[in-house]
Nucleic acid binder design. Structure first.
Length: 278
DNA sequence: AACTTATACAACCGCATTTAC
DNA sequence: AGTAAATGCGGTTGTATAAGT
């Protein structure tokens, strides 16, 4: 199906909205609602396409939108959610009342991403332990250092491609294992199957138990160092932040407590090479 | 003061998905 | 069930402003 580009028709205005246009849109929606965006501008007397009206309303004019700078707590939430969800801005926004996906996307690209990269550069030795660094940032950092990301020699896996933000689904419920480095060191980690075999990561995915295999204990002991009682998860990690795999912590509400575990799973690798100090 | 570069954010584009017929 | 329209979503661009030279 071929769709005509938005606002292709001549005469429809584009670009920044004026206060007058805003007021017209607000007045109209307050009176009649926004049941049909396509028809709305014509009925309201706006020389805009419906799509433009919808975006203006949802991203800026809605009365429930919280304006102003993001708090530190909100930023931390975004970082945590982004680690779990990737660029699913609308899903992230759903967890932050009053914030729009567009706004979150902007703050991510203008503030948070840079902050994380800077953190990784400032403390490269701590990179592998960072709660906020995924493979993507590893590569970003490597790129900014003008070096090639290092692959693992003698390993059956390697650092994922640049831009590939790995998520728990990519760790798969398939707990076949991969050995990192010298097989004698016994570092075995869960290995994802081919990307095409990953289950869809949705709310259902998150709410289901991921790890059923009896292998999980040994795998987790390898990445987390705690091999006693593995508490099989999972909950909605967005509502009930990440479960702990550490019996000493008892379902910590702080995902950072377990980030070693998650980071290892996310990257499919147990020990990231440290960034060169340039 | 003039110019350049960086930053922030609103808005647009086009593809994907959902809905209506 | 098939098709077109409507809507949702994420990536990208445009522009105003601030900061730096």
């Amino acid at each position: 199906m071929v769709r005509a580009p938005c606002c292709e028709k001549m005469g429809l205005k584009k670009g920044p909205w004026t206060p007058e246009e805003d007021q017209i849109l607000i007045n109209y929606i307050q009176l009649y609602g926004h049941g049909n965006w396509r028809a709305l501008p014509k009925q309201a007397g706006l020389l805009r396409c419906g799509k433009s009206c919808r975006l203006r309303w949802t991203n800026y004019l809605r009365p429930d939108i919280k304006r102003g700078n993001f708090s530190r707590e909100e930023e931390e939430t975004i970082i945590q959610l982004h680690e779990m969800l990737g660029n699913r801005w609308s899903a992230i926004a759903a967890r932050l009342p009053g914030r729009t996906d567009n706004e979150i996307k902007n703050v991510w690209h203008t503030h948070l991403k840079k902050r994380l990269i800077k953190q990784s550069q400032d403390t490269p030795a701590a990179t592998k332990r960072s709660s906020t660094i995924t493979s993507k940032y590893y590569h970003e950092a490597a790129k900014s250092h003008q070096v090639e990301p290092v692959s693992y020699a003698n390993s059956e896996t390697e650092i994922p491609e640049y831009g590939q933000v790995l998520s728990p689904q990519e760790c798969s419920s398939d707990l076949s294992t991969v050995t990192i480095g010298d097989s004698s060191d016994n570092n075995t980690y869960p290995k994802a199957d081919s990307p095409g075999n990953f289950p869809e990561m949705d709310e259902k995915f998150w709410s289901e138990v991921l790890w059923e295999s009896s292998e999980v204990a040994s795998d987790l002991s390898a990445v987390g160092g705690h091999d006693q009682q593995v508490q099989t998860p999972l909950y909605d990690p967005l509502l009930s932040p990440l479960m702990t795999m550490d019996p000493l912590h008892e379902y910590s509400s702080n995902m950072h407590d377990n980030m070693d575990f998650w980071f290892n799973l996310f990257t499919r690798a147990g020990d990231l090479p440290e960034l060169p100090d340039i």
